[in-house]
Design a protein around this nucleic acid. Structure first.
Lengths: 210, 210
DNA sequence: GTCTATAATTCGATAGAC
DNA sequence: GTCTATCGAATTATAGAC
């Protein structure tokens, strides 16, 4: 029993830091808050991660990578089909993994950590903002390429800011999940399917606009 | 010459704090940064505002109120016309003041302070988030009422999250203004008119979707 | 109203024992 | 790997002279 406690410690720090960084941001979270809630020693943070900023990097990577991976897989599936995908299909592939992760994690505050973390990174000055941008760059390029094939009459610049607004909307919808007037009212699979459908119907004509 | 220096001091603090809070957030900005860049004494902040949080409140109010006022006026103008407004007209009234303020302030970083400030508030936990929500509540209710009349078949809840995504997009577009792939490439009146038109065309069909 | 001085905490990071 | 102890610097806020 009780396997290598070092791993437990490192993972415990990551989990608590994810929660606190998502809730309070980088500057608003102190390492002492993290270690207190994680029940570990302050030096353990520096031993396992080196610094506060490196811990933040690790947290962002941990929450982003599963979603990026699934989203790329979804796109590959869509593009492997015989028929040419339309905007709706691509948007559905883009949105589904993020909302799927939401219910997989139970639908509570913890399920929105990635979205809230991204929302924070996108408002931060450059050392922090770049951390999140780098994690999602490959994903955005892949989807922009796919959208470019479906909407060849639009310039890359145009598709760029339009997809950026989809991302902004996705982050916002997930960050607000559970609140009174939110799109996502509960974490049932049916509610998530409805949310995906509504977001697709919302953003598909927007992507086609000029 | 050199009128009441007290007013200069207070305004100087407000201006610098606006810049720094927009760039670095509430927790990421220290009062000592503010007073250093403003060239005033630390005690002047507490004398004029009482605390860091009260200073933040004052900054948010200062940047938000002109835009809220103009947006409400725009809506009143639209609704005073004879013909019934459509979704495009209402969205244009909603977006125009924010983008107008952008060029009025010269189009530099300073012009996006309000948007970046709102982007920050909307990701913060509740004491801070509520500060911005309160400033814009009247505005949102007025526009939701207007949209409800034009789109009576949609529920209030539906219009609510849809307008919330418009706000998220507006904040994002302004925060990114000037960057390489942004919608707003420069601060010429023509570029702003194009941006307004594209945002209206982007979000109008989205608002109508189901 | 503006200043100096300082109280009272808190911060990230590190040295060194075990 | 984990701990205690602590450094050095930074933080908000206030007391009190001018």
């Amino acid at each position: 029993m009780k396997a290598a406690s070092a791993i437990d410690t490192k993972e415990q720090i990551l989990n608590v830091a994810e929660e606190l960084f998502a809730e309070q941001g980088f500057a608003g979270t102190s390492l002492r808050q993290v270690i207190k809630q994680a029940g570990v020693n302050l030096s353990a943070v520096h031993y396992h991660f080196g610094s506060k900023e490196e811990l933040f990097r690790a947290v962002v990577a941990k929450t982003a990578q599963p979603i990026v991976k699934k989203s790329l897989e979804q796109l590959a599936i869509v593009e492997a089909r015989e028929e040419t995908p339309n905007v709706e299909t691509i948007l559905e592939a883009f949105l589904t993994p993020s909302l799927q992760v939401f219910i997989e994690n139970g639908g509570g505050d913890r399920s929105t950590n990635c979205a809230r973390l991204m929302g924070r990174c996108r408002t931060e000055p450059d050392p922090i903002q770049k951390i999140a941008d780098d994690e999602f760059e490959e994903l955005c390029v892949a989807y922009l390429d796919a959208l470019q094939r479906v909407l060849p009459e639009q310039s890359r610049n145009e598709l760029d800011w339009k997809l950026d607004l989809v991302v902004a909307g996705l982050i916002r919808v997930l960050s607000e999940a559970g609140k009174s007037n939110a799109l996502i009212q509960d974490n049932s699979p049916e509610a998530i399917q409805v949310a995906i459908k509504r977001l697709v119907n919302y953003f598909a004509p927007a992507m086609r606009s000029h």
